[in-house]
Simulated scan of single mutants.
Amino acid sequence: MRFAALGSIVLFAGNALLAGDARAERAAPVPPVDTTRRDVGVGLSVGGLVLGSVGAGMYFLTQPRGEDLCGCASKAWVFPTVLMSLGGAMAVTGIPLWITGQIQSDRAKTQAQLLIGPLGGGVRLRF
């Protein structure tokens, strides 16, 4: 009988301590999630697509037509080609940054906690 009473006291005390820890954890502020990588990736991708589109538009507008089909002396293709190249490089750099920023922010939201008490235990997952 004494062991049952002692076990009950230990069980109640352990649960009270664990509940106090859980309340203290809920009261602690959650650190902000770093979204810099995701935002930079979106900016680079959108900027690269716009820059590439402007370069492609300029390239097709400066193509020789009619009697100017030779185009031997024309260097009008250089600047639009540089714009398209820069836009493509920006988009190719921005997409992986956006993807890794999403993965990083998703992982920061997920938490796992292992609770071990005197007569039991538990696992708590937060998403």
Score class of each variant (00 low, 15 high):
Gly117Val: 08
Trp77Tyr: 14
Asn15Gln: 13
Val46Ile: 12
Thr36Glu: 07
Gly87Pro: 00
Ala89Trp: 04
Gly20Glu: 13
Asp68Tyr: 11
Arg37Cys: 02
Gln63Trp: 09
Ala19Arg: 15
Glu25Met: 09
Thr36Val: 12
Leu49Pro: 00
Val46Ala: 09
Leu11Val: 07
Tyr59His: 12
Gln111Arg: 15
Leu61Asn: 03
Trp77Ile: 12
Pro32Ile: 00
Leu86Tyr: 10
Ala89His: 05
Val78Glu: 07
Arg124Gln: 14
Phe12Cys: 07
Val50Gly: 04
Ser105Cys: 08
Leu6His: 04
Leu18Pro: 06
Gly41Glu: 00
Leu61Arg: 02
Leu97His: 01
Ala16His: 14
Leu125Glu: 14
Arg37Lys: 15
Leu86Asn: 12
Arg23Ser: 09
Ile116Thr: 13
Gly66Cys: 05
Thr93Val: 10
Arg38Glu: 08
Val30Ser: 09
Asp68Gln: 11
Ser74Glu: 10
Ala24Arg: 01
Pro31Thr: 01
Arg65Glu: 15
Ile9Trp: 15
Arg37Asn: 03
Phe79Pro: 04
Cys70Asn: 13
Asp39Lys: 13
Phe60Gln: 05
Pro32His: 04
Leu6Gln: 04
Leu6Met: 11
Ala108His: 07
Gln63Phe: 14
Ile95Tyr: 01
Trp77Leu: 11
Leu97Lys: 01
Ala27Gly: 06
Arg38Cys: 01
Tyr59Lys: 10
Gly120Tyr: 10
Met58Ala: 13
Ala13Arg: 14
Ala89Ser: 10
Gly7Met: 07
Gly7Arg: 14
Ala16Gln: 15
Ala108Ile: 05
Val54Gln: 02
Pro80Gln: 06
Arg126Phe: 02
Ile99Cys: 06
Arg2Ser: 13
Phe3Trp: 08
Leu114Tyr: 09
Val50Gln: 03
Ile103Arg: 15
Leu114Ala: 10
Val46Ser: 02
Gly122Asp: 04
Ala91Val: 02
Arg23Gly: 03
Cys70Asp: 13
Gly71His: 05
